[in-house]
Design a protein around this nucleic acid. Structure first.
Lengths: 340, 340
DNA sequence: GGCGTCATCGCAAACGTTTACGAAGGCTTG
DNA sequence: CAAGCCTTCGTAAACGTTTGCGATGACGCC
């Protein structure tokens, strides 16, 4: 309601001074500044965002791109919820807003982002669920909009990224299983080209080689990252008969437990299981699966810090180019037993 | 990049005409309009949002308030994901943007909303997880910002709402259980004052009365809406020994299955269970629980339609005041058996 | 006392868009 | 043919904010 002119009129000073006082700009008397701040709360004045954005050429808003539609739900819903909560909290402290931008997979991501950039809705954008070759990254590197990816990619260009160490998760998983005596270790992968699966597989292959185990292509499975996919995996494993299986999807794990039950296979004694990401839903499976835990809120804050660093002109460009790998902690579970 | 002035210069016409052409305003020659539209795509022109908002006094953005923090996760993450996807899709078709506004439960909701209104970030706001007495609704009824609630409330005032028919779910649940011969039917409620629990309880009480059954306060339980809460409920039920239990939380149901297993109680034969909302996670429990299904995407679209109706000046005010109760469909499950 | 410096503040021009208003010209109609 | 209307378009003033520039004193110093 209240204008900056109302405020200025009410204080008998110019709007310029009011603006400088509110924005902590130099050149305004301490007493006047105090009066302005006081009057601002009294009148309930908050700067209009459109006017400020227009003048400053910046919206103080960060976009967070979520791909919705088909293959989006690879991370369970609570992952993004926790992440967004932490990110929003951090950004709010810095005076930034957060705008979630659901990009439907049916849309052309390039066109979607093109409009986004041109409209000047956001000062920077975070993109998630990166692909090995990602058209969105291609598009953004050509534009002037700063961006940060949650997830690595092999798309050419120098851009900041934050990712979880799926490679390390796979290595540790193999190591834990091998320590128990497993040799026939199956790998469950998503059936799309999301980067997570790529790194998970690379870690698996490296760790298997380190352990002196030969890779059996018949033990590598690709299924939709869903409960149904996990259920189908149960049948496949009943055929292939590995002594252990590694998974990289929570939903798939839930489905696998049901699928194994139907096949008469007891998780743990009959088939060791290690998966991630740890969450309450998985913790109440029986036997509790061995998982990996990650501090999602920390990732949210990390994203916030680095996306702000991208925007602040005083940081050196090379310092702003984050390449951060977040580790996950191993959580033992009763789902890992020695092989029969 | 490209300005509306660039566009006008490029076409040798005035910016006013360009604006009118782009916005489908009357008073511009069809041929000129075509030329403008063509040049717009050629130069990649998209109207700057800040300038437009400032002039129009509207941002063409809908806010979606999500309460994060403690008691927020009553709905599992995928609920909001599906909802937001559908809502965003609908709004995009109407030229509106969607802004998710996480309001941390630690914040003062009134102050949060006050700033929001004053800043003019959004033209309307949708609030979720309504409480029986909701300070946010109080605040919004006093402001001029149009809003819509997902969930009913008893906060005074005439405001549009959309809600799911939890009352009907409870009635139907009781009816199904009574039809199987159950008389000692337990009720699991959330431990906070979210409206869902209130309506669920009312439906339960009414249906029990209709069936001629007396209410046993010892069979009504309040637990956190989480897996841990459901696990604890398992122990409580082992003490109280009802023949059936009704739940209104997905996470609680998952925890209950684990808790019952620990108590040596077999879901179905030993204790009938009916719960909602149906989702993949629940479908892979064994025995599959009887649940209720709701078309979440439809709710998303419904929200979109009604929030847009709130903003369009040509709709009659009384038509814009939606009070919509969305039904849920009963899905039988093996978790319902006759009592022993 | 004159001069330079500094702190403080007002003035006014932007930022990009929309829109009320008026002007010009073509057309119809009496 | 004049009057009036309609179509089409240009002009310019907003929307609310920030900020460069200049003005006004106050103060210190030679």
């Amino acid at each position: 309601m209240a204008d900056i002119r109302d405020l200025a009129l009410h204080l008998n000073i110019s709007t310029g001074t009011v603006s400088r006082a509110l924005n902590n700009r130099p050149g305004v008397n301490a007493a006047t500044r105090a009066r302005v701040l006081e009057a601002a709360i009294e009148l309930g004045y908050v700067a209009n965002q459109s006017g400020r954005s227009l003048r400053r050429g910046a919206t103080n808003t960060i976009g967070f791109l979520i791909e919705t539609g088909s293959a989006a739900n690879q991370e369970s819903g609570d992952f993004f919820f926790i992440l967004l909560d932490a990110l929003h909290l951090y950004l709010a402290g810095k005076g930034f807003d957060l705008m979630i931008l659901p990009c439907h997979s049916a849309d052309d991501p390039a066109e979607f982002l093109g409009r986004l950039v041109a409209r000047g809705l956001v000062d920077a954008v975070v993109i998630t669920a990166t692909r090995r070759h990602d058209r969105r990254i291609e598009m953004l590197t050509r534009s002037t909009l700063p961006f940060l990816t949650l997830g690595r990619s092999e798309t050419p260009g120098a851009y900041p990224w934050i990712d979880m160490d799926f490679d390390g998760v796979a290595r540790r998983s193999v190591a834990e299983l091998v320590a128990q005596g497993h040799r026939r270790i199956a790998l469950a992968l998503p059936d799309n080209d999301v980067m997570l699966g790529y790194h998970y597989r690379r870690g698996y292959e490296a760790a298997m080689a380190d352990a002196g185990l030969t890779l059996d292509p018949a033990l590598i499975f690709r299924n939709p990252t869903s409960e149904a996919g996990g259920f189908a995996l149960g049948r496949q494993l009943a055929q292939a008969r590995p002594s252990a299986v590694m998974l990289c999807s929570e939903a798939t794990t839930v489905g696998l437990y049901a699928g194994l039950q139907r096949e008469g296979i007891t998780p743990g004694p009959d088939l060791s299981i290690v998966t991630f990401r740890e969450n309450p839903q998985l913790r109440f499976l029986s036997p509790a699966p061995a998982t990996f835990r990650v501090d999602i809120s920390a990732i949210g804050r990390l994203i916030g810090e680095n996306v702000i660093a991208l925007l602040s002109p005083d940081t050196r460009p090379e310092a702003a180019r984050a390449e951060i790998l977040v580790p996950l902690d191993y959580l033992p579970g009763a789902s890992i037993c020695p092989p029969r």
